[in-house]
Design a protein around this nucleic acid. Sequence first.
DNA 1: ACAAAAGTGTTACCGCTACACCCATGA
DNA 2: TCATGGGTGTAGCGGTAACACTTTTGT
Lengths: 243, 243
Amino acid sequence: MKYNEQTKQWESPYWHPALTTDAVVFGFDGVGLNVLLIQRGLEPYEHMWALPGGFMREDDKSARDCAYRELNEETNVNDIFMEELQCFSDKDRDPRERVITIAFFALVVKDKYQIMGGDDARVAKWFPVKGLPALAFDHKDIIETALERLRQRIHFEPIGFHLLDKEFTMPQLHNIYIAILDPPEDDTKLRDRRNFNKKMLKLGYIKETGKKVTGNPHRSPKLYTFDEEAYQRAKKIGMRLEF
Amino acid sequence: MKYNEQTKQWESPYWHPALTTDAVVFGFDGVGLNVLLIQRGLEPYEHMWALPGGFMREDDKSARDCAYRELNEETNVNDIFMEELQCFSDKDRDPRERVITIAFFALVVKDKYQIMGGDDARVAKWFPVKGLPALAFDHKDIIETALERLRQRIHFEPIGFHLLDKEFTMPQLHNIYIAILDPPEDDTKLRDRRNFNKKMLKLGYIKETGKKVTGNPHRSPKLYTFDEEAYQRAKKIGMRLEF
DNA sequence: ACAAAAGTGTTACCGCTACACCCATGA
DNA sequence: TCATGGGTGTAGCGGTAACACTTTTGT
């Protein structure tokens, strides 16, 4: 690489690929996990479903920023948990040119996640992970990788909360664990409410709010919140956070 | 993006950044962890130490392939454990131009890892992680991220083996866990040999070879190997692999 | 014989699993 | 009053942590 005194720029002799970000956005509807997909308005893969994402721009501060920007173009996301998943860089991922993609996975509160009319007249829609349509590019692989990562993560870090409102009930949280980990029917230790509640409360980072949810034809469940500080404390002293 | 009928090519209207891979290569010398660094022969950061890596080429099959290629240019790596770490994409990481880097972390058997005279008259050298020199670019951040990842990984996956010969002794393996996790002096459960051996053997995927190491002025330790099949079996049935 | 490091077993405690009945609420 | 779903305690078992002495080997 040489510095050109005239243009005051480095002239790169290196190959420059196109770079995109894609986000696997998970939402929970009380029963199962869902993924947010966008219907493509242009070739290639026109009309097929794909992950929200797009090409990185020179003024994106980072790949993460790019992913946020792309998401914001379709939704009103404000509070969102997002983590880098993996880079997808195989040849022929994209028929147009070599494209390197940094994939992210995100957890959002599905109901707060209002889908706006995107540019390109793109349509966004939630699909249950157990009923995905045909997908553009290698996005099926990306989603599978994200699901695998999600299963690993939820074992050791309290990320289930990000799929729920700030205040949530224990059965809601339990359902998330069941939906993600999908333990066998006879797995008492995960499926039993008593065991779940005890284990979760013993971790020490969720707290009762004192409130309850009313309006249902049955006993009103208590509301809890996640205590970030308590979590950081537990983490610092090397507490076992495995679920 | 438009298809040009004349040139038969897609013409990309999108920005294309430079893309590199860097590898944080860890080796173990019996006492502590070491990282492989390269002394830069060119500006920027001439003469400073940096992670082995370089620009991706159009004919690299993937980012991982690129990282392997770059490593092979300096060493005779054959068997290596390598995992994607993270993408580093902030502006101004590189004074020349915007460079996106996919970082990997790798575990190798330090003594087998013979450092060759690289191109660019680059010098490669092992440094203990607790005594790193000043580093080029944001490579200090990258190494810290890799260390953090290593600590997380070794809790839940048997990757310590990759730092040792195919046949290894229990005390060697124990030392690796101690070096990586660095538990307090009074942490019996991790530092006690008896507990370590029992826990490790109970996991079921390391086996005695029947051999011993001789030549030391003390009792000869037994040699063990990692049983990949047994590990896959344990993993499949959802066995708890936490250490 | 001595120094250095490796091998090994037991006990007490804690935490987890399994398990079933009652309670609150709205219709 | 009925249907629905939420809340709660305990006992037995299993696994883990704490703990020290003996064995091997080379010098």
